[in-house]
Design a protein around this nucleic acid. Structure first.
Length: 480
RNA sequence: GGCGACGUGGCCGAGUGGUUAGGCAGCGGACUGCAAAUCCGUGUACCCCAGUUCGAUCCUGGGCGUCGCCUCCA
């Protein structure tokens, strides 16, 4: 039984989709005016894994992630760069997609853009005005927060409490300082659309209300995003959508924790962010993806080079096992490990699903995977015979098929993984390995060790096995 | 000021009212020409104080500390 933590109830709840086998989910995407940073990677990674696990459970998942392609920051940035805002947003949508692809994040089923839904946003404004939930003021349209009795139910705060500690700016156009804008009148020179209230453009929150309803219908199953969106963004979405339709908006609300740098939230405003692009120059995308799995999605995740290096070592351990498995030649002698292999898969599946069923506990799921790795290494050391080895191979394939499809890591073959960072031509390397093998044959261990040390300095590690010498290349890093 | 989260062994990080998380690093052993990889063994861990309990790291109350939301933000 899958249990998910619902921000709305502040508890883990049994997950029961509204329609049998169908899951509709909507995740808030990015405002496209800059490159994505690691915080975006986390959010995207988290919801990708949630989606993949739901698929694994057999659900038919429709996954919507929007692009916010009109807002103050976009206008500002396009003015600064002196390029049309549409060009700016088109560029960063492409860049966003490239980053997400490299992180092995499945493309959403739908990726609506706010500006494609202007008409529907105007209609929702009209509906809300007609129902008394919104009002016009100098060409702006505001949501009348006090009219929506349940306002605050997601973020668990009361309007009165918020008013008491209010530290928000006074705006003469508003009836109440917590009223938020649905539609704003255009200033001269700004991009704008024609509306019943004159030229203007949409406020931020309304796009998600409109696009989710248009594509998924109401209510839908899961609405997600970063923790920082709980208030005001998601609270406001609920107010708009539930007031407009008179029904439930989303059944489950899922929010991911932040990425921290030195105990502080990584954010644009603090300026302590790393773009995905920059991190990928130093670390393979799979390392970044694995790193995201090492902490539960609701906790904050501390971003540092050390943690990425640890993630890399963990992946090395995984690929080492897979490599040794691939290279193993079973003999006539040996043991039949069929029973152990079958038991191993069974135990893994049980532990893996229990972990993921418990609010997508990926660190515990990884622990189950590492148990398979140790067990497999042990079984390999016991020399499986021609009957036992295929059973072991099949068992490991079954396990890693799940790891690949749900967690989205170990997409490489071991050969690829240990070759990504090869720093010298392979011919040259093979020649050196041959020279060392010759030296070893002549008991000239000094020469052999020199060659080995020389290669180690360029990131290539040699290992002697029964079937000859193999190599593993790792990235030479300039820092630390 | 209002609301909330967190504090686990050298580091990271799950979890539980009494019985092994897992990874990284360290130490001892096996293996190796030596290594590496791997396996085996190895750690008086749960911020402080009080309470509930036969028993609390896990429950309750208080304290200290860190962080987040309340303004754009994944």
């Amino acid at each position: 039984m899958l249990r998910v933590f619902n921000t709305l109830s502040n508890t883990k709840e049994e997950f029961k989709p509204i329609n049998e086998n169908k899951v509709n989910m909507y995740v808030c995407g990015v405002t496209v005016y800059d490159f994505c940073h690691v915080g975006h990677a986390r959010s995207s990674g988290v919801f990708d894994i949630i989606r993949r696990y739901l698929l694994h459970k057999g659900y038919d998942v429709t996954f919507v992630k929007n692009f916010t392609d009109i807002d103050d920051k976009i206008i500002k940035r396009s003015n600064e760069a002196n390029i049309p805002w549409t060009e700016l947003t088109a560029k960063f949508m492409d860049e966003h997609n490239a980053d997400m692809d490299s992180l092995n994040i499945l493309r959403p089923t739908h990726t609506p853009k706010a500006t494609d839904y202007i008409k529907q946003m105007i209609e929702m404004c009209e509906t809300l005005i007609n129902k008394g939930f919104a009002y016009e003021s100098n060409g702006d349209i505001y949501y009348r927060v006090q009219k929506f009795e349940e306002y605050g139910k997601l973020s668990h705060r009361k309007l009165e409490d918020m008013m008491a500690g209010a530290r928000i700016e006074v705006n003469d156009n508003k009836e109440n300082p917590f009223d938020f804008v649905l539609w704003k009148a255009a200033k001269p020179g700004e991009p704008s659309w024609t509306s019943p209230w004159g030229e203007g453009r949409p406020g931020w929150h309304i796009e998600c209300s409109v696009m989710s309803e248009d594509i998924l219908g109401l209510p839908f199953d899961i609405h997600g995003g970063g923790k920082d969106l709980v208030f005001p963004h998601h609270e406001n979405e609920i107010a708009q959508s539930e007031a407009a339709c008179g029904c439930m908006f989303s059944k489950y609300w899922i929010h991911n924790g932040f990425v921290n740098v030195n105990q502080e939230k990584m954010s644009k405003s603090l300026g302590n962010f790393f773009t995905i692009r920059d991190v990928l120059k130093e670390f393979d995308a799979e390392i970044v993806r694995y790193f995201l799995l090492t902490t539960h999605y609701r906790s904050s995740l501390d971003f540092s080079q050390d943690h990425l290096l640890e993630a890399e070592k963990s992946l090395n351990r995984i690929y080492t096992m897979l490599d040794e498995l691939n290279r193993f030649n079973p003999g006539k002698k040996g043991v039949d490990v069929t029973a152990e292999a079958e038991k191993m898969v069974e135990t893994f599946m049980q532990k893996f699903e229990a972990a993921m069923d418990d609010d997508f506990n990926t660190p515990e799921a990884l622990a189950a995977m590492f148990e398979v790795i140790r067990e497999t290494n042990t079984l390999l050391a016991s020399k499986p015979n021609k009957i036992g080895f295929p059973a072991l191979l099949k068992a490991v394939e079954t396990v890693f098929c799940v790891i690949k499809s749900v967690l989205g890591v170990t997409k490489y073959s071991p050969e690829e993984w240990f070759r990504i960072n090869l720093s010298i031509p392979e011919d040259e390397l093979n020649a050196k390995i041959q020279a060392r093998t010759d030296a070893k044959k002549n008991k000239d261990f000094a020469t052999a060790d020199n060659i080995r040390n020389e290669l180690l300095e360029v990131g290539i590690e040699l290992q002697d096995t029964i079937d000859g010498t193999i190599y593993r290349a790792s990235k030479i890093r300039t820092f630390s």
